[in-house]
């Protein structure tokens, strides 16, 4: 629903992308089966409806549940485990999970103390999580939503519109809420904490090349070699703006400077910096990007208290990266540092 599929390549065209795939329609269920089999000590897969839950369910804590379209792996299923999520609900590629999936995953994860839903701001996701919340209320399960809307590129200031999209800051929200839930925080405190982290997070993403949907042999858009898409989301769509391609040292300040301004960060403040690959960008490049983020923030007198570099919130095989800054205080840093043991994030 978010991306636009391409027409099938004609017999004379040369496929530009090849994928490891049986049938495009089976990729999500096959990947989930493989994922669960690869991490048997961390997770279990429920079949109908599909969701991933902890292999050993937690007792006596608020459950933290997230979900969204597939194609963003390792998000969200990769963050199921001690210290982060209790369950994650995958939809089809770039499409929201259904309300019944969310309801059943939440009921399986609920220990009687309620459920926090961490939701990236997209119309379909928000609607289905809201509906799930109403279905859960009918079952006597309390739940509330933490909406993650960190994408600065979609900050139009229009209060009647859909608002900013949710992107890589969702990892910080899941980490911090997951840790606080583990320590016994109640539903109200967790919701307030998650909303605070989300409100103090902003992200900008750039694409060097579009990704291709499963089974599609060509990417969802073409970019000239001397341009980048500036301000992309995580669903393969174009950005509102194209800018000139250039060295990392020229591109990164264009991403970080607006984040500092939007968050109102001042000299001496501390942040968590997340440099996230969008699917086809190598760690070598991502660490190069982080070096430039560090240089820029150092010049602005902003202290990078913690760092996460890697591909955590992807857009299929899009080449590109996002930079997220999260304003950090003692409480947030302490929760960030708390132990986590999940397939995608462990410390």
């Amino acid at each position: 629903m978010y991306g636009s599929p391409n027409t099938v390549a004609g017999p004379r065209s040369v496929p530009v992308r090849r994928q490891f795939i049986n049938e495009p329609g089976d990729i999500v269920s096959e990947a989930l089966e493989g994922f669960a089999a690869a991490w048997p000590h961390h997770v279990r897969l429920n079949d109908e409806p599909a969701y991933v839950a902890r292999a050993r369910p937690a007792a006596d804590k608020v459950a933290v549940v997230s979900g969204g379209g597939s194609g963003h792996e390792p998000l969200h299923v990769g963050f199921v485990g001690t210290g982060m999520l209790d369950a994650a609900v995958p939809g089809a590629v770039f499409a929201s999970p259904t309300a019944v999936q969310i309801r059943d995953a939440s009921m399986a994860a609920d220990t009687g103390r309620g459920v926090v839903h961490v939701v990236k701001n997209y119309t379909g996701d928000v609607l289905n999580f809201r509906i799930a919340g109403e279905l859960l209320a009918d079952e006597g399960v309390r739940s509330d939503i933490v909406l993650v809307d960190d994408d600065l590129a979609t900050d139009t200031g229009d209060s009647g519109g859909p608002g900013r999209r949710g992107t890589a800051a969702v990892v910080a929200v899941e980490k911090v809420c997951g840790a606080a839930a583990e320590r016994g925080a109640d539903l109200e405190a967790l919701t307030a904490l998650g909303r605070r982290v989300a409100a103090h997070s902003r992200t900008l993403s750039v694409a060097l090349a579009a990704g291709a949907h499963p089974g599609q042999s060509s990417p969802s858009f073409e970019l000239p070699g001397d341009e980048i898409e500036f301000g992309v989301g995580i669903h393969g769509e174009r950005a509102r703006e194209r800018r000139a391609f250039g060295p990392t040292g020229e591109l990164v300040p264009q991403m970080v400077s607006p984040l500092v301004k939007a968050l109102g960060l001042e000299r001496g403040e501390r942040v968590i910096a997340i440099v996230n690959g969008l699917g086809a960008t190598h760690d070598l490049e991502l660490y190069g990007v982080f070096g430039e983020v560090r240089r820029f923030l150092g010049g602005a007198g902003i202290d990078i208290a913690r760092t996460l570099v890697g591909s955590y919130v992807t857009s299929l095989d899009m080449a590109g990266c996002s930079v997220t800054l999260v304003r950090a205080d003692e409480e947030v840093l302490d929760l960030w540092d708390a132990p986590a043991a999940t397939p995608a994030l462990t410390w």
Binding site: A99, Q101, I131
Partner: peptide, 18 residues
Amino acid sequence: GETFLAHSGGTSGPLFGM
């Protein structure tokens, strides 16, 4: 209603489900 809510992940389907 349950069928719509279990199988429709878009926006119209879930609203018809409700």
